[in-house]
Design a binder for these strands. Sequence first.
DNA 1: AACCGGATATACT
DNA 2: GTATATCCGGTTT
Length: 197
Amino acid sequence: MTELKPLSIDFFQQPTLELAQNLLGCLLVKETEEGIASGYIVETEAYIGPGDRASHGFGNRRTKRTEILFGEAGYVYTFVTHTHTLVNVVSGPAEESEGILVRAIEPVEGIDLMRERRGIDNLRNLTNGPGKLTKALKIKMDDYGLPITKPPLYITTGKIPEAISKGPRVGIENSGEAKHYPWRFWITGNPFVSRKG
DNA sequence: AACCGGATATACT
DNA sequence: GTATATCCGGTTT
């Protein structure tokens, strides 16, 4: 095993659409008292505030909830929808609401812990969706606003994807034109993406 | 394919 | 205060 260090803050300062693709293959790590759980990021989506009706920061709407999106790149934006927590990485410069949703990971470390947290055995179903991976890694609203560059929640280099696919984002039916933007990226053929691509 | 759960935030009155 | 919407997932038809 090579020693893995968190990516530094400047990695997150590249343009959002590039960062969304460059995060594919990186390792997302969550440390807890129960142990470490991690996985390669295999699917992401970009949300670019001002002109993106699917983004919580659409039209530069700045609220308590979205405040972190307007901050500097490299911080964690968590929110809850229905019964699930979703995790984003803030990107773009300060004062601009841009972020990247982590939609799926490929389990690497702490797989038994993930199985326990998810209450299932099937490896393929542990982390192949944005609400699933947060439960497997125990990412919650507690993590809102943390830097993504140091424990307990951070991203390291991982493997280099062989090929990247892209397409429209998922679950944003009510977002006008924005629903067609090809801002979802995934590692081609990876079995842990949330939907086949 | 439908539907419903149940956290959080924001919009409406 | 009440109503409505949501970057979802599991269960039921």
